[in-house]
Every structure is written in structure tokens, then in C-alpha cells.
Nucleic acid binder design. Structure first.
Lengths: 203, 203
DNA sequence: CTAGTTACAGGATTTGAAATTTGTCACCGA
DNA sequence: TCGGTGACAAATTTCAAATCCTGTAACTAG
């Protein structure tokens, strides 16, 4: 007797988030999720192919929200590219710091996916690189940045700020000085991006 | 009957390295080390206060060797600072890549220490920062770099190259493109360090 | 045909007892 | 007194049995 509820994917995702928050990513089971919904675990498998797929859907939800938040900053033409780049790089760090503070379990679930080489993580990086490339392209267009290839430059900037965007450094983001460190790295990178004509630094 | 051998700290370290290589850092025990030396494990504790101290001593040996290798590059005044910085940053990566290839178990032992917040790891970072600051100070002195504080700048450069020097990224160092990525980051950083007078990039 | 059920095989995880390891101590010989 | 030994308590690890979880399948109601 199913009693009630049509049980759509979104309802399952909400319940999964709740279970993840309560039990943490290691102890959360599909059976727990089903129990919270008042159905058998097989019902969940009608909507999601695997436990992995369920975890990915939950994480993708959060990452898509982040992507949209950051996209607003990246696309804001009222802010000059030099300043926009700095703001955006800080925001990338800030949204992750906020998640760790408010939803450590869900953040840990994200970490597990990334370690498992899920495409969810790599897709998100691709999204971020696209936004970064857009900022840099804007800067190249208005003459504030000197670059021949905005996408390549975006990758370089992303690598140079790995300490502030890569999951592997999440433990260090608790450190109070981390924002100032990012600021200093930004300053040096911006010097490089704005540098005139280019010195032959291969010398 | 001790039979032979005065058994000094160095002999124990050599045996420990061998055991670590054979068993890996998780399965290597001090009883194993003692057995390999033909003594009881209590004898090992006469020379090292704990298993942790033994692991640290083995790792410190390797790190000190690295430090010395890199110090030669850092102090080589025959190479101009701009080029020396690039070479040194590549060498930091290269020595770690080599260890992973040749001695994966010992490298893993290093990772365990770093995760345990041993001072061995932080001391080594301090050493590297000192070398980096020396290169940058040389560059400031001969006018190739513009900086008011070589040590602060060294920290910034180190953070910006975290992807290529921080243990957390060790898995990515297998990737064939990693050297080229570092090269690109170096180029951008060098542009920033060499940039004239400075643009007010706070704008 | 969709969205649920029960039943079940195979794989992971938990559990608790046994074994091993760590670290200490009293003692011993050169 | 230095460098070793054997015996030991406490903590940790191992291993096998039991349990639980994942994923599939055959079945059912609307």
C-alpha cells in the first residue's frame, strides 16, 4: 500500500540530501533514503540507476547552483575585467568555504565523487574555466589584459589559483589568512596579465 | 647475545628504509625493522623515541637531500634569476616525481607524515621558501624583479605553484602535460614579477 | 507502461575475539 | 652508563562470521 506521494526525482533528491546531512556520506544508504520516503529501496532504483547516480544528482544540484551564482559575477560587464577577475576568484573560494561551514556532510560527498573521478567534478571545472575565459576575453577586448588565447590563459590562472579552488586544499580553507593569500596571488597574476608587450622571460 | 654490530642510528634508518620499501608504510612495523637487524624491537627504541620519530627521521633524510639538491640550483649565481626561478620551480616538481617513480612506498610515508601535521613537512616548506626568497632577492638586486619584500613574494609564488609542489596534487603529477602546465604558470608569474613600476590593479 | 512491491544473490560492512604491535620497565653485561 | 634483553600492559590490527546493503528480477496494481 503506497499510501501517498507520487514520488518524483526531486522528492528523492531532497530526502537524500537530508539523509546525507544526518548520517554523512559514508553511512548514508539507499535503504535509509527509501525509509525516509516510506517506500522500499527498490522504488528509489526506479528513478536512479545506482547509488552513485543518486549522489551525483545531489552534488550536481549544488554545483549547478554555484555555477549560476558565479556566472552572474563573471558576466557582469558593469565591473571592469581586472576587478571582476579578482572578485570572481574570491567568490569561487567563498562559495566552497560557505558549503563546508553550513553543510560539511554534503561537501564531503562532493569530495568522494571527485576522488572517484566522476564527470560531475570535471564538468564543473569545465564550467568554471568557461566563465574565467569569458572574463579574460572581456579584458583582452578592452585592452586591460594582454593575451592571444583567453581559454589557455584561463587554464593558467586556474592552475595558479589551485590552492584556492581545488578540493585537495579544502582543509586549508579554514585558515583565517587564506583570503589574504588569495589576494596576493591575484595581485601578482594581474600584474602578469596586464604587463605590457611582454618581456622575453624565456631568457 | 648481540653477536655483532654496534647498531647506530644510521644503520637503523637504512634498515627502516628497506622495510618501508618492502612492506609499504602501512604494514611496516618496528618489529620488522628489529628483526631485519637481528635485535629485539626494544633495542630500536633505545635510539628512536617512537615509531613516528623513526618514520620522521627516514623522511627527513630524503627531504634534506632534496633541499640540498635544490639549494645548489637556487644559489647558482651564474644563472640569471629569471631563468633560475623557472628552473628551480621545475626542479621542485621533478625531485618529487622521481621519488614517486623510484620509491613509491617512501613517498607514501612522507604523505602520511604530512597528513599528521608533522613538523618535518612544515620545516621542509620553510626551507624551500628560503631558497625561493633568495632567488627573488637576487632578482630584486639586479633589477630583473620588482619587489619590496622577497620573502612575501616567495610565499606568493609558492602558493601560485601549489599545484606543482603541494603533496595534495601528487596524483596529478603522473599526467604527461604537467610540465607544460608549470611552464605556462611560470611564464605568467614571471611577467608579473618583471612588470614595470606596477599598475594599480586594485582598481 | 509506470511506479511500486517482495524476494534474493553477491558484495560490502560491521562486529567481536584473537593476535600483533607499540611503548615501557626492570634488569644485565662491557 | 650505554646499548642491549625479556616480559608486559594497552592500543591497534587482523580475520572470520554475521549482518547489512546494493542492485536485479519477477510480479502487481493502476
Amino acid at each position: 500500500m503506497p499510501a501517498r506521494s507520487p514520488l518524483d526525482a526531486d522528492t528523492i533528491l531532497a530526502a537524500t540530501e537530508e539523509i546525507l546531512r544526518r548520517h554523512g556520506p559514508d553511512k548514508a544508504t539507499v535503504v535509509d533514503v527509501a525509509r525516509a520516503l516510506g517506500v522500499t529501496h527498490a522504488a528509489v532504483y526506479k528513478h536512479f540507476a545506482s547509488k552513485q547516480a543518486l549522489r551525483e544528482a545531489v552534488t550536481r544540484r549544488w554545483l549547478d547552483h554555484n555555477r549560476d551564482t558565479l556566472a552572474v559575477l563573471a558576466a557582469d560587464r558593469t565591473v571592469p575585467p581586472v576587478r571582476r577577475l579578482r572578485i570572481w576568484l574570491h567568490a569561487v573560494l567563498a562559495v566552497k568555504q560557505a558549503k563546508i561551514r553550513e553543510d560539511p556532510e554534503l561537501f564531503a560527498a562532493y569530495g568522494i565523487l571527485a576522488a572517484a573521478h566522476s564527470t560531475v567534478a570535471t564538468d564543473h571545472v569545465a564550467d568554471l574555466l568557461g566563465q574565467l575565459a569569458a572574463i579574460i576575453a572581456d579584458g583582452a577586448a578592452d585592452g586591460s589584459f594582454r593575451t592571444s588565447d583567453a581559454e589557455a590563459t584561463a587554464r593558467v590562472v586556474f592552475h595558479a589559483t589551485a590552492k584556492f579552488n581545488h578540493l585537495a586544499h579544502a582543509a586549508e580553507w579554514q585558515n583565517p589568512g587564506i583570503g589574504a593569500e588569495l589576494d596576493e596571488v591575484c595581485s601578482l597574476l594581474l600584474e602578469g596579465l596586464q604587463a605590457p608587450a611582454s618581456a622575453k622571460n624565456k631568457e
